[in-house]
Amino acid sequence: MKKRGVGYGAFFYGTGYGNGFPDESRAVIEITSSGRFNLYVGVSDVGSGGISVMQQIAQETLKTDGELINIIWNDTSLVLDTGTAAASRQTYNTGNAVKIACEKMRDRINEVIGEKELKTKEDVNEIYNLFLDKNIETRFEGYFKATTSQVNLETGQGNPYWPYTFGIEKAVVEVDTETGKVDVLEIVAAYDAGKIVNPAQAEGQIIGGASMGIGYAIMEEVIVNKGSIKNRSFSDYIIPTSMDMPKVTTYFVEKNEPTGPYGAKGLGEPAMLPTAPAILNAIYNAVGIRLTEFPATCERVLAAIKEKEQRDQEKRDNI
């Protein structure tokens, strides 16, 4: 028999290195004679979209077009230390550094021409020439350090992370009680990652996270025997394919984070946190079994269903 269930998983997640560890980002904005800005930033973009986010923040702050900003990234002979693309920290931390650098630049631009937008290369070139005439710097550095402090282990007081990202996911599953097979039919995700800088990319992060979460919940298991991983290929370490993915619906609760760049917070790691718990809760809702071990393979689910049936039978016999 196939039984359906609904489950939820909720989380809060501190982004950044945390616990007082120096969490610093730097960025440099430069105006050039070519009628464009150069943004030097050390974001490693491995598909997480950091480069687009930095460009958008720079464009917003400088009041210019994204096409007029060259991004020079990752070349350590050219860029300052931005910290790692880890801990879901780039949008918040490095975004702030980019914003601070660009604000310094825009303040000087305002001094020479006022609040005017810079729409063309000629506009930017005019500023560049005015800067040279007035002996104004053409390069500005931004620095941002997240405010965390070490937690006092005796009192439990401190500020271990700042800021936190929040979210909840709903999973709908179908469990085959004869085979133990679990199908995920639907995921609905709602996240508060502050103001979303790039909605298309943010959705991509959430859907990708959901796919990793589904793999984590029902497929992926590293089998280790005497220190050696036994399933080292995609034929026995199974990850979701396009056929395994249900529809993922994404909602953003864009609550402004006052310390974030334009109110933004981090999203990378949080994207896969609530999926697996939501799926296990949905399995419980469907067939009444509490799994405490990942993944919910056919064997484990079937064994747990059998065990439950036996328990239920014993209860009935005792009455």
């Binding site: 598909g47 991509g204 859907i207 996270g209 796919s211 394919t241 396009s242 993915m245 529809k247």
Partner: peptide, 20 residues
């Protein structure tokens, strides 16, 4: 049919939805 046609191409980042 689209999902089946790309099911032999594994993707770890996107969750396939936007590819479809």
């Amino acid at each position: 049919e689209i999902k089946e046609a790309i099911s032999g191409n594994l993707c770890r980042c996107t969750g396939y939805q936007k590819i479809v």
